[in-house]
Nucleic acid binder design. Structure first.
Lengths: 222, 222
DNA sequence: CTCTCATTTATAGTACTACTATATTTGCTG
DNA sequence: CAGCAAATATAGTAGTACTATAAATGAGAG
């Protein structure tokens, strides 16, 4: 299992997190934000959990939204890197696409690690809170700061594979976004709004990947 | 143009809004929440705008999330009613489906009204803030209160039309959710994250409807 | 081995949010 | 015009999301 070097945009962070306290803040922050949700999560609570003061946390991150965006970037960067890596030794673009869909559905080698984080923990946070990274009044400013680049890059990569499968395709990006979006949206539905999907919590991500793969095959088939 | 009777779940509201103040709160709340986003929106600001006291607002709604959920229900109830109504005189299920897709893309008769609200204003709010109705730690409790029923009903209705087009279809609900979800998600992307889609702000919703219709036709074509 | 400088802490404070509580006034209804 | 719900006025609480500043700590350089 290859470990990739993943570094979110340094603009997200106020100071290098590669310190004992910095690492604890990142590790405990992920757990706590997942536990409490972005609204219930505060730097005060994180400081308590990480064994430092609130001020120290503020020295690393300007606010909790930036911390969420950090995890978000970490997740999408890792996922895109993983997709590209896995696709490297596959000649058939359709096979690469299938591999990508498996990955965006949350199916990875058991020992996968996104830098210091368990990607499954990152994914859970991103499924539940990730869209709050951009669903706010400063989207456009944040977008100018390139904060959503990793997400766009993944969608762009998948759009590229789609084009490789069907060179004349008109809406590769819109459809790539559809696949990535629904991988998360349907996972949320499976757990909280089961009436929205035939997929069940039990049967897991394989069924999700199967639905998305089928969708892609039908979309490409003419 | 038929006007439908639309009543969100009375459990969302603490007292009948059919009063001069209640109506002002609802009307100004929609504008203000759209302007400020859910995070920047407060009952204090709404009271000022509606010419009443903060306490009066609290007499009508327990908190701002409930008010958002009220608009959300209003939107989905109206949209589902509209879809069903328009489909009534169409015999071909494929034509009904195309009509539904046009509607979820935000294309309606110019004089459409959702009760006292302009559905275009509701849609803008729901595109930008709607998912905060369920993206929080109380989803499961809110779901038990049936707060998401109107949304599920619309997806269920579209799933029904899909089944009418292709009786053997296995994932009608997942695909219906995909259509409804992406109608909003791509509209947000068009305005704020244009790299995610070929659709442009300018060329509008017709292109969005065309993409979704094409997606549905391909999905159903085998 | 101690000086230095960045990191971390301690302490304090501000403006605002999201309410709750209660007493009083207003205005329609029978 | 009595009664009652709706609306207001006023006050207060606990917490959030920071900012500010000075003091303590500790690792690395000379």
């Amino acid at each position: 299992m290859a470990r990739y070097l993943i570094e979110p945009d340094p603009g997200l962070v106020l100071r290098d997190t590669n310190t004992p306290v910095g690492a604890r803040i990142l590790a405990e922050g992920l757990v706590l934000m997942s536990e409490l949700g972005l609204e219930g999560f505060t730097f005060r609570k994180l400081a308590e959990r990480a064994g430092c003061t609130e001020m120290t946390v503020y020295h690393y991150f300007a606010n909790k939204h930036r911390l969420l965006q950090y995890y978000d970037q970490m997740y999408w960067l890792w996922l895109a890197t993983h997709c590209k890596q896995e696709g490297r030794h596959l000649k058939d673009p359709m096979e690469r696409l299938r591999g990508d869909i498996t990955a965006i559905s949350g199916i990875w080698p058991a020992d996968a690690m996104a830098g210091p984080f368990d990607p499954a923990a990152l994914r859970q946070l991103v499924v539940n809170e990730g869209s709050k990274s951009f669903l706010h009044k400063d989207v456009d400013a944040d977008n100018k700061l390139q904060l959503f680049k990793p997400y766009k890059d993944l969608c762009g990569h998948i759009a590229g594979e789609l084009k490789a499968c069907a060179p004349g395709l008109k809406h590769a990006r819109s459809f790539a976004t559809t696949l990535v979006d629904m991988a998360h949206s349907l996972e949320f539905a499976m757990h909280h709004l089961p009436a929205l999907t035939e997929l069940s919590k039990r049967k897991d991500r394989k069924k999700l990947a199967a639905f998305l793969t089928d969708l892609a095959e039908r979309y490409l088939s003419r």
